[in-house]
Amino acid sequence: MADIALPDTPALVQERPDRTRVLSRLRLTNASFRTLTLAAAILVLVILGGVIVALIEGSLPALRQFGFSFVVTESWNPVTEKFGALAPIYGTLVTSAIAMLIAVPFGLLIAVFLTELCPMWLRRPVGIAIELLAGIPSIIYGIWGLFVFAPFLQHTLQPFLIDLFGPIPVLSTLFAGPPYGIGILTAGLILAIMVLPFITSISRDVFEAVPPVLKEAAYGLGCTTWEVVRHVVIPFARVGVTGGVMLGLGRALGETMAVTFVIGNAHRISGSLLAPGTTISASIANEFTEALGDLYTSSLVALGLILFVITFIVLAIARYMLMRIERRIG
C-alpha cells in the first residue's frame, strides 16, 4: 500500500488544499452517507408497506364477499366461486408444527454434539454438510420428496404407523387410512429436513459464543456434559436459539415448492396425518396461473394476506417470549 501511495504524496503536499474545503467535503460525505443508510432503511419499510397495501387491496373483493366466514369455511369450490381458507390454514399450521417438533430437538442435539462432543477433525465435515443442506433449492427437495422419499415412506414408515397405532383410540384416527406416501406427514417431514440446518447452524454459533470459563467452571465442579449443556450452555444461549427456531418456523410456514410436491393438494381437513391436505402457499402456487375471474384471484390473494398475518403473529410471539426471558434473567 505504502509503495503505491508514495509517488502521489509530493503532489498532495504541493497542492496544500484549503483546510475548510477539506472539512466541508468531509461533512458532505458524512451527511450523504447518513442519508444513504437512512434511504436504504426506509426503502425496506416502503416495500413492506407496499406489499401490505397490495395484499389488502387485492383481497378486498373476497373479504367483502365472504367476510369472516372466509377464515372458518373449509369448502374451496372454483366452480360455484365459494371459497374458504380453513383447509390451507390448517395444513400450514400442522405441517409447520410437525416440522418444528422434529427439527428443534434434532437441531439442538446436533449443535451440542458439534460444539461439546465432536472430535475436532469431524467438526468441519459435519458442519459443512449441514450448511449444504440449507443451500439445496426447495424444488430439489420437492423432486426428491416425490420420487424417493414418498415411495420410501409409503412402503416403510406409513404402514408401520398404521399397524402400530391401529388399536389405540385417538392415535388410530391420527394415523388412519391407506398409505399414499404423500400427505400432511410427508410434507412435515420434508419441512423438518429443510429447517434443520437453520436451527442447527444458528444454535451451534450461539453455543460457541458461550464463554469457555463458564463451562470449564461447571466441569471443574464435576458436572457431566449433560449437566453443563442443560444448566450452562442452553440458559446462556436461549435467546439465540429461539431466534434460530423462529427463522426455521418462518421458512416452514412459507415453503412452497417442496410442500406442493408431497402434500397431496386436497382442500380438505382430515383427522389423519397420512391423508392429503394443502397449505396456503401450495394453494396459491397451484391455482394462480389458471384462476379465472376476480373473486377466484382475490381469494388467492386473501390467502397470501392470511399467511402474512400468521407469520407476523409468530414473529410477535417470538419477540414477546424473548422479552420475557430477558426480563426474567435481567
Binding site: S75, W76, N77, P78, V79, Y180, I182, G183, T260, F261, G264, N265, A266, H267, P276, T278, N286, E287, E290, L292
Partner: peptide
C-alpha cells in the same frame, strides 16, 4: 372448471 372441488383423492402437480 380448470380446477374443481374434488370430493376424493390426492392432487398432483
Amino acid at each position: 372448471a380448470t380446477s374443481v372441488e374434488w370430493p376424493v383423492g390426492i392432487g398432483a402437480k
